Amino acid sequence: MAKNEITCDEILKELKAKQYRPVYYLMGEEAYYIDLIADYIEDKVLTETEKEFNLTVIYGNETDIASVINAAKRYPMMSEHQVIIVKEAQNLSNIDELSYYLQRPQPSTILVFCHKHGALDRRKKIAGEIEKVGILFESKKLKEGQLPAFISAYMKRKGTDIEPKAAAMLADFVGADLSRLTGEMEKLVITLPHGKTRVTPEQVEQNIGISKDYNNFELRNALVEKDVLKANKIIRYFEDNPKTNPIQMTLAVLFGFFSNLMLAYYAPEKSEQGIAAFLGLKSPWQAREYQTAMRKYTGVKTMRIIGEIRQTDAKSKGVGNSSLSDGELLRELIFFILH
């Protein structure tokens, strides 16, 4: 992240301190942070009475930039501010025309654009003009390795702790869809037994539907340790329960791990801290698996494993495969990895 890029937490801190900007342009591939900021502005800036006359929510495919600017120039009624939220702003044409409004934005208007599944070109003049008077925020997808730290931080804000294995199980099962991930975490918080403040793997197993013993996290551990018996038990369980353990999810986890392992060989410093920093991991303990795996797998073998995972992915989608089931494909892949 560039030094001048503002974070979601910094924006929310400003908002909670009632420090408002005239324009917020929220964009990017990760919808979660865009919704988090926009929802806070929609829910908290105005009182319920003020919202009746001073909150406007419109959609980019139902309006144009001229209408947005005209609305933004209005004065609030019986309130210090009016809030205008433009959802699906990626569908607005001629966004460059916002430049005229940005030269003299209405101080009492808080204008919010929600641009999902893409971003403004930061090299364009309009991007710089937004940053001069307001907020230009890009919401980026988290990497797989960042998910356990995100889960732990989210739980702490809820006054709850979560065991590392439980966090890893969630990360592997749900992936980087933060909206779904936070929904699953809310479920765990609600279902915590009275007086308990720590989420365990057992609770994840009971409430999310992930086996604490047979999941992608445990499969990865078995492969790291080259535990042939454990790995085969897990893939047999996967084969018997294909709906909760689809091959595509398993392949994504394995590809992510072995791709990172390949990168770890190039880390200048092979300590936990050095590998964690090189791979962008939030916590040094996450690097321990890579240290262990580097002792078990050579760089050449790791490269071949990555190629085999790619081939298995193609075969699972019917490319060059007319007879093997997903379970058989996974068994062949795990055999190749372990031998």
Rank of each mutant, 00 (worst) to 15 (best):
L136S: 11
E138F: 09
S139R: 14
S139C: 13
K141A: 12
K141R: 15
K141V: 11
L142Q: 11
L142C: 07
G145S: 09
I151M: 02
S152D: 12
Y154R: 14
Y154V: 06
Y154I: 01
R157F: 00
K158L: 11
E163S: 10
K165A: 15
A168C: 11
A168G: 08
G175Y: 04
M185G: 04
V189R: 01
I190Y: 06
T191N: 14
T191R: 10
L192F: 04
L192K: 06
H194Q: 13
G195K: 08
R198C: 02
E202N: 05
E202W: 01
E202V: 05
Q203F: 03
V204S: 03
E205H: 07
S211D: 15
S211I: 09
S211E: 10
K212A: 10
D213M: 07
Y214K: 06
N216F: 00
F217I: 00
F217E: 07
F217D: 08
L219A: 08
N221W: 09
L223T: 14
L223N: 15
L229A: 14
K230S: 14
K230G: 12
E239P: 02
K243R: 15
P246T: 03
M249Y: 03
T250G: 01
V253I: 14
L254S: 00
G256W: 03
F257W: 07
N260S: 12
L261Q: 07
M262R: 03
Y266I: 00
P268H: 03
E269P: 00
A276M: 04
